[in-house]
Structure formats: structure tokens, C-alpha cells
Design a binder for these strands. Structure first.
Length: 492
RNA sequence: CGGGGUGUGGCGCAGUUGGUUAGCGUACUUGGUUUGGGACCAAGUGGUCCUCCGUUCGAGUCGGAGUACCCCGACCA
């Protein structure tokens, strides 16, 4: 494992792109920095959506949909928000094309210029708060909690498949509350929903924490994050939940009459996760044979490969497989019988491994005679011959075991790469080795920025719960007093 | 926007100091033999060599300009 990781560090990106393409998840589109998500990749995303959506609904949020286009003026209403996003917006200026009178092709018709330019949403706070203004007038309207599944566009200078594409799919929740406390609780609750999803479905350990002021969402008073460690030791921000205070309420004049009949501004949160989670999934668990998908998110949990010489043998094996498949389906397990007769078994094995299918069952004439099957697991790449009797039950248990094993493996890897560092000299060499460094920090933006300049490392979060954060000490850079350790890492 | 690299059948690449019918692997098509870890044999299909301009008897190869993509920075919830 360690050797593999080293070789990936050298050319991690190449490995990652090859893997993604070969595993049929996605590819670059003709449009700059955008990606095409292929059917198998999208099936994973759909599964994520379904699980998250159910969790959101449990919290009382409802789905809604807001426009793709945002009037330019909306974006400028919240000062910090503009500053954060203005540099990376795609802008619609015209509503019609015409033939170029001086050459070939089409040009934007100068007569069709928009009076007010429209921005393709980089996030929807502004248009949603402009709408909420009309939905909220009384304390009885609160809390208001909407989520939308949508695409957003951010014109990043440099893009990267899954991790930072120009257009990406995500969900964004936007809530309005009567009190600051309630809004903060909501932000905290949602980051825990994300953490639970990452750990129990993606099998990806994450650290929950607050962002430092420097890394906060544009316009937020507090940003909560889940931070994951990829196999090359870099950090990936996998999801965020923001306490927005009254900033957007004031910018868009969203007030409600409280029980005393007085007008008050509402308190807001927003929270989101994106298709970046798929990148996180790939980079957390993938190995040199391709993807390793946790059973909870695998579109196909069990693939069955028949082995045969004649059509009669194929029919006999598939008949037996169908019986097992029905039992598995009855247990809620998704199964695919790969009966393509143009491909040899070895090819199919390699292909399904590349796609990360957790469990493979192979059966041939010998198995039929002996009442056995070959059971292989993707996470350990091991296989064994087992009796067909009781196989569905065994597979169900195996899936649970794989889910747990993948998490444990990722957790062990992360823990092995989290180190406490107490001197600046040590910090500078240790940070280059990858992994998370737990260090004291004086709490100032200046220190954070200097550390970033000198080492490229950023504060990933000020952890909550995961690590004991009560210990006092001295800032690694300035030597000034610190109330607790924070997580430093090089990030994607 | 800086620094570097690469553009040659669908994909991955080779192509020598310019030289004649542009090649290899893979994929694809057809036929046959195979099938318990990415099959083999045979015969085929498929290319305005990124674009334009130039040098030359002759350009995939040399020169110039443009363009696209990749990597490293800057940038980035």
C-alpha cells in the first residue's frame, strides 16, 4: 500500500484521470473545465442523492427549485458574497445570435443585448433570499427550510475532474430561523448529517470542524466543514454548512413579525455537498485495480459471472444464478448476472473490479456438480469456494463486512498520517510528507496567511469532537498563546 | 495570466540528418479455434499527420503565427 501511494504522489493526477476514464465514471467534455458523467458514474450520484435526500427530509427540509439565472444586481447586495464570487462568474449578455455579416459563423446580435446582465448561479443564496423575502412575514412562517438539487457554474482558472469542475451538480440547503441560536443549531445539525453520510455510506472518515475566518464561505459568520484525507495525504473539503447570521436577511430585507409584533431580521444557514463527493470516494478507496466502492453506494453490489463452454452449460449456470439472484434481490441487494457470451470470464473479472463492484460470484459446471460457488471480495481481492446453500445470507453479511472494512482501512490510514507537531522547523518538513498536522495556532489571519505562503498548508478546520481540542499551548508560528490544536494540511 | 509539455485512425504511441505507398499496439469487422483471471490464428475496415502562412524539387519532419489540451504556479466554499 505504502509503495503504491508513493508512486501515486509522483503522478497522482494521471493515475486518477486514467482510473476515472477507464472505470467509466466520467470524462472531459468539449466545454472547458466541464465533465460528462457517464451512466455508471451517474448511478453512484443518484444513489448518493437518494440517501441524502431522505436525510434532509427527516430534518424537515423540503425540495424546491430556483432559477439558473441571477440578475447581476442581486449578487452585489451582500458585500463579502460579491467579493468571493464575482471573479468566477459566467455572464449572459445577449438573448439572440445572428449570422456574422463580416465573416462566417454566428455572433451575438448587438440589438439583443440584455438590459441587465444575468449571472449563471455560482450558488443560489441571492436569488433564494430575494424569493424568501416574499415568503416570510410572521414568526409562524419560520423556520423555512428548502433544499435544491441543481447545477452551478464557477469559472475556475484551473479545473480538475470531479474535484473542481467549471459546472458541477450539488444540493444546496437554505434555511431561515427566528433566532441566532436556532440557526447555529441547524448549521451544526446539517454538518453532522454530512459527517454521518461520509462515514456510514461513503466509508470515508471525516473530521468535523469550524473553518478559520480566512477559509470561511463568502458572507458567512461561521463555516462548518467535513474534511477528509485522500490516499496521497492531501486534504479534501467534502461538505460545508454555514451559519450566515443576518447578513443575507439584511441584504435582501427579510424580516418577520415576532410574537410581540416587532419586526426582526431572520437568521440564516446554507449547506451543500457536490459531485466532488464522487472524487472523494474514488480517491479514498481506489487501488491499482480501479475503483473500490462501498456496498452502500455501489450501483451493482453483486456481479455474477457464469463460466461455461457450451450454451447448455451457460443455461444451466444462469438458471442457478437466477435463483440466487432472486433471493439476493429479496434482501434488497442489487445483482447483475453478466451473461454476455462474447467475453471471457477473466475479462469480466477485470472489468467489474475496475468498476469497484464489492462482491463477485463465479459459477461453472464444476460448481454446479459440487454445489459450490466462487465468492470474491473487491476490497481485499481475495476469493474462496463456498457452498451455494445459504449463499445469499453469506453475501449479505459479507457486504456489511466490506462496508466496515473499507471504513476501517481508510480510518487506519488517516490516523497513521495525523501527527502532532510543536515546532516550526518540524512543521516545514513534516507538512511536505502529506497528512494532517495537529498544531497550535494563535487564531490570527496574519499567521494563517504567512504559514500558507511559506508552506502552502492551510488550516483545514478547528476540529470539534474528533480530536481533544482543549489542550493549551503556543502557536507554532508566532509562539503566542493558543487555546487548542487545529488541523493543517495541503489541500486539493 | 506566467513557466513547461503535448497535438499523427476511436484510444495509446513511434516516425532517424526533410525523401517517395505514414507505421505499431489496442479497439473495431469477418471467419475459425477457444472459454475456471484481461484468449489465439487469419483476413479486413478506418488517417485533410491541430489550423493557417512560409522555406523547399519534395514537409508528419524545418521556420513563423494561431489554437486546443495537459502539468506546475497564481486563483479557488
Amino acid at each position: 500500500m505504502a509503495k503504491d501511494v508513493t508512486s501515486r504522489e509522483e503522478n497522482y493526477s494521471q493515475w486518477y484521470n486514467d482510473l476515472v476514464v477507464k472505470a467509466d465514471l466520467a470524462e472531459q467534455s468539449a466545454v472547458r473545465g466541464c465533465m460528462v458523467i457517464k451512466p455508471y458514474g451517474y448511478a453512484i450520484w443518484e444513489k448518493m442523492q437518494r440517501i441524502l435526500d431522505a436525510k434532509f427530509k427527516e430534518t424537515g427540509a423540503q425540495n424546491a427549485y430556483f432559477p439558473l439565472f441571477i440578475p447581476k444586481s442581486f449578487l452585489s447586495k451582500e458585500a463579502e458574497h460579491v467579493e468571493g464570487f464575482a471573479k468566477e462568474c459566467a455572464v449572459v449578455t445577449h438573448h439572440r445570435l445572428k449570422k456574422d455579416p463580416h465573416g462566417k459563423g454566428l455572433i451575438a446580435d448587438p440589438d439583443a443585448r440584455l438590459e441587465e446582465e444575468l449571472v449563471v448561479r455560482p450558488t443560489s443564496e441571492t436569488i433564494i433570499w430575494n424569493t424568501y423575502k416574499n415568503w416570510i412575514s410572521s414568526w409562524r412562517d419560520l423556520p423555512l427550510m428548502c433544499n435544491q438539487w441543481a447545477n452551478v457554474v464557477r469559472w475556475e482558472m484551473r479545473t480538475r475532474l470531479f474535484l473542481r469542475t467549471a459546472e458541477f451538480l450539488w444540493q444546496e440547503g437554505h434555511t431561515a430561523h427566528a433566532t441566532s441560536q436556532e440557526a447555529q443549531q441547524e448549521a451544526r445539525r446539517m454538518v453532522e448529517v454530512y459527517a454521518d453520510f461520509a462515514r456510514n455510506y461513503m466509508a470515508m472518515p471525516v473530521i468535523v470542524g469550524h473553518k478559520s475566518p480566512n477559509e470561511r464561505f463568502a458572507g458567512a459568520l461561521d463555516t462548518l466543514t467535513i474534511e477528509a484525507m485522500m490516499q496521497d495525504g492531501k486534504a479534501l473539503q467534502a461538505g460545508t454548512s454555514h451559519f450566515l447570521g443576518q447578513n443575507f436577511a439584511k441584504a435582501f430585507d427579510v424580516q418577520f413579525a415576532n410574537k410581540e409584533g416587532k419586526l426582526e431580521y431572520v437568521w440564516a444557514t446554507s449547506w451543500g455537498v457536490s459531485t466532488r463527493l464522487m472524487g472523494a470516494l474514488i480517491m479514498s478507496h481506489g487501488d491499482d485495480n480501479g475503483l473500490v466502492l462501498p456496498p452502500a453506494l455501489a450501483p451493482i453490489q453483486v456481479v455474477m459471472v457464469p463460466i461455461y463452454k457450451s450454451q447448455e452449460e451457460l443455461a444451466a449456470v444462469v438458471e442457478k444464478m437466477n435463483v440466487i439472484a432472486e433471493e439476493l434481490k429479496a434482501k434488497g441487494i442489487s445483482v447483475k448476472i453478466d451473461d454476455r457470451d462474447t467475453l471471457r470470464p477473466g475479462f469480466k473479472f477485470a472489468e467489474w473490479e475496475l468498476k469497484g463492484v464489492p462482491v463477485r460470484v463465479a459459477m461453472g459446471p464444476r460448481d454446479l456438480a459440487a454445489g459450490t460457488a466462487e465468492l470474491a471480495r473487491r476490497d481485499t481481492l481475495t476469493k474462496e469456494s463456498v457452498p451455494v446453500d445459504g449463499l445469499p445470507g453469506k453475501i449479505a453479511a459479507l457486504l456489511d463486512d466490506i462496508q466496515k472494512n473499507i471504513y476501517d482501512k481508510a480510518l487506519a490510514y488517516r490516523n497513521a498520517n495525523v501527527r502532532k507537531v510543536d515546532s516550526w522547523e518540524e512543521f516545514k518538513t513534516e507538512i511536505q510528507k502529506g497528512g494532517f498536522l495537529l498544531c497550535h495556532w494563535d487564531g490570527t489571519v496574519e499567521t494563517e496567511e504567512k504559514i500558507k505562503e511559506e508552506t502552502k498548508a492551510t488550516i483545514r478546520c478547528i476540529p470539534i469532537d474528533t480530536y481533544d481540542n482543549e489542550e493549551e499551548g503556543k502557536c507554532i508560528y508566532s509562539g503566542k498563546p493558543s487555546k487548542g490544536r487545529v488541523v493543517f494540511a495541503i489541500s486539493y
